[in-house]
Write a protein that binds this DNA or RNA. Structure first.
Length: 575
RNA sequence: GGGCCUGUAGCUCAAUUGGUCAGAGCAGAGCGCUCAUAACGCUUUGGUUGGGGGUUCGAGUCCCUCCGGGCCUACCA
């Protein structure tokens, strides 16, 4: 039994996430967590909302609410949606928690003690009307290069030229539109990542089994140009973790907060501490996951994230951990994902393009989304959601291959033998062949899950479902029944056991359907089939069951067309 | 501009890291079955692996080049 710590990248607080966000981190991490638990591993699966930063303040202002209240409400909204998608977090925390605040301040203090923090004075644009400093991309103006009038301070969207905010002609605040801007001097703390470069490089070099997407991004940052740059870790904002050096004040940093990307990954630790608090446990309960001097020596730590998160998880967060010179657990494996596109373009919040988590659950049960998203998860390159593909996958894989198998077996049994597992003869060569094939396929499935190759795992799982239909077709209990009801009974008994096996194997991907099947079979729980042959003799003759309702309803052409139109957004995908 | 990823059948993806006739699912065609959500099974048609050149006994895989798609480029998170 292994101990596995799993974290999903934190969803940002300022709104409901779309399916692309879901599939890029939370969903695959959930499958992995469920699988590890099913195999008997001790799992700690952590996620949280990432609540600090300028976008949260602006979203709160737009909603007319204090930012703390806004975040509290949005956290509940996101927690609800996570439950709706059956995300099985052991704890869903908040980066604004007291726990995270304390750990963040502690680590910053340690970094300072170790000479890895530097104070830098720099000039930034301040908006008097907004009463805040503006990050580069919150400044708009006319591009000096191409004349585009909505160029951002970091880059012109029109001509793609990199800009400095002071380059812009007639600059204005993107928040209020105010042109009452000035350049002010401000002091900030920088994490001296450049001093950590060799250590980080050596660490990344060990990770030959990581996805190339992960290591190539890390190497680029480590080696590009002058190499890894120091990074500002404080901001002039109200909402965030107040800058402190451990539990002491930090002279000169009054009124400032840590940069959201400094405190967000630390919340993986913070949320685990929140979990301990919520369960009335003491610090040792969470420290045994995070401190190698307090029991985390044997923990395997796996992170899931979209590719945009990789630099922070391969560089700045490890730099924070390593630089503390304290025995914190470092990540062992980083699984990163590409993006999911929507029907010929990108998901777009502003244009209302694509399907968002709340809408998805309004339309169809979570298992449908889970299955499609996971069987198309963008592991190797960006992938694309289309309604045609979605409809085909759901109808074929879930309704026809799995759902119909459950239906045909249970209904046939009810009609000929009643709602209980039939008596009858033993298993013969046909069953032995199925056992052999499924054993082989389960081993392959386990291999893919262990390697976190989600797509391959879904393909193997589907192939295991197909074996049931092949078996039934060949065994033909409906024909055998006419001359030899006992033999037909054995076939049905075997098929009912296959259904139970499928429920167990499928649970990481489609937990609701799995639960529905087990409940129809009058089973409370189900062990992982370490021995397939034994697993297929689990349901004894005479065991009562119910014929379940239709597991997966098909998506009709009309419904598909209607949804397609509804989520197309305000602009067409292609010009 | 620089860096990285990517291009395989009509569609979505594989291919044990250079090694038999490039494989699956869906869609298409034919046959079978009738227990089942008009479901299932069997058979089968589709590929000059984006183009061109090179290395090699052997290239989807390595190198060069051209074309297309995507991402990142450090103060959005």
């Amino acid at each position: 039994m292994a101990r596995i710590l799993i974290t999903s990248a934190l969803p940002y607080i300022n709104g409901i996430k779309h399916l692309g966000n879901l599939v890029g981190s939370q969903l695959p991490s959930d499958v992995f967590a469920r699988y590890c638990r099913a195999r008997g591993d001790e799992v700690m699966y952590i996620c949280a909302t990432d609540e600090h930063g300028t976008p949260a303040e602006i979203a709160a202002a737009k909603a007319g609410k204090p930012v703390a209240q806004y975040c509290a409400e949005m956290h509940e909204v996101q927690a609800d949606l996570a439950r709706g998608f059956r995300l099985s977090f052991d704890y869903f925390g908040r980066s604004s928690s007291a726990r995270n605040r304390a750990i963040t301040q502690h680590l910053a203090g340690r970094l300072a003690d170790n000479g890895l923090i530097e104070e830098v004075s720099e000039k930034q644009v301040y908006s008097r009307a907004d009463g805040r400093f503006l990050p580069d991309r919150y400044i708009e103006g006319t591009c000096p290069n191409c004349g585009y009038d909505s160029a951002r301070g970091d880059q012109c969207e029109n001509c793609t030229k990199q800009l400095d905010p002071t380059d812009l002609i007639d600059p204005r605040s993107a928040i209020s539109g105010s042109t009452d801007l000035e350049v002010r001097e401000t002091r900030h703390l920088f994490l001296r990542q450049s001093k950590m470069r060799d250590r980080l490089n050596a660490w990344i070099d060990q990770k030959s089994d990581w996805p190339i997407l992960t290591t190539s991004i890390a190497r680029k940052w480590l080696n590009d140009g002058d190499g890894l740059q120091d990074r500002g870790i404080t901001r002039d904002l109200d909402w965030g973790v107040p800058v402190k050096r451990g539990d002491r004040d930090w002279p000169g940093m009054e009124g400032k907060v840590f940069y959201v990307w400094f405190d967000a990954p630390i919340e993986y630790i913070g949320a685990t501490a929140e979990w301990a608090d919520a369960n009335g446990l003491d610090d040792s309960a969470w420290e045994r996951w995070w401190r190698t001097d307090k029991g985390a020596e044997d923990v395997r730590y796996v992170q899931f994230m979209g590719k945009d998160n990789v630099p922070f998880h391969t560089l700045s967060f490890p730099a924070t951990i390593m630089g503390s010179n304290e025995p914190w657990k470092l990540v062992d494996y980083i699984k990163s994902f590409n993006y999911l596109n929507y029907d010929g373009g990108q998901f777009s919040t502003s244009k209302g393009r694509g399907v968002f988590m709340d809408q998805a659950l309004d339309i169809l049960p979570s298992d449908y989304w889970r299955w499609w998203l996971l069987s198309h998860v963008p592991e190797n390159s960006d992938s694309e959601f289309t309604w045609e593909n979605f409809q085909a996958s759901i109808n074929k894989d879930l309704a026809d291959v799995l759902g119909n198998f459950v239906s045909r077996v249970t209904k046939f049994c009810r009609a000929r033998f009643g709602e209980a597992v039939p008596e009858g003869g033993g298993y013969g060569p046909a069953e032995a062949a199925v056992i052999a094939e499924i054993s082989r396929r389960v081993a392959a499935y386990e291999g893919h899950m262990a390697a976190i190759e989600i797509r391959k795992a879904t393909a193997e799982l589907r192939a295991i479902w197909v074996v049931g239909n092949e078996y039934l077709q060949t065994a033909a209990p409906w024909a055998v029944f006419k001359s030899d009801p006992e033999a037909a009974g054995a076939i049905v008994r075997f098929a009912l056991n296959l259904i139970r096996l499928y429920a167990v194997l499928s649970e990481p991907f489609i937990p609701d359907a799995s639960a529905t099947i087990l409940s129809a079979l009058h089973l409370q729980s189900a062990e992982w089939p370490d021995d397939v042959e034994a697993a297929l003799s689990t349901l004894p003759a005479g065991h009562a069951f119910d014929v379940p309702e239709v597991l997966f309803a098909k998506i009709t052409d009309d419904a598909r067309t209607e949804m397609q139109a509804r989520f197309a957004g305000t602009q067409t995908a292609k010009a």
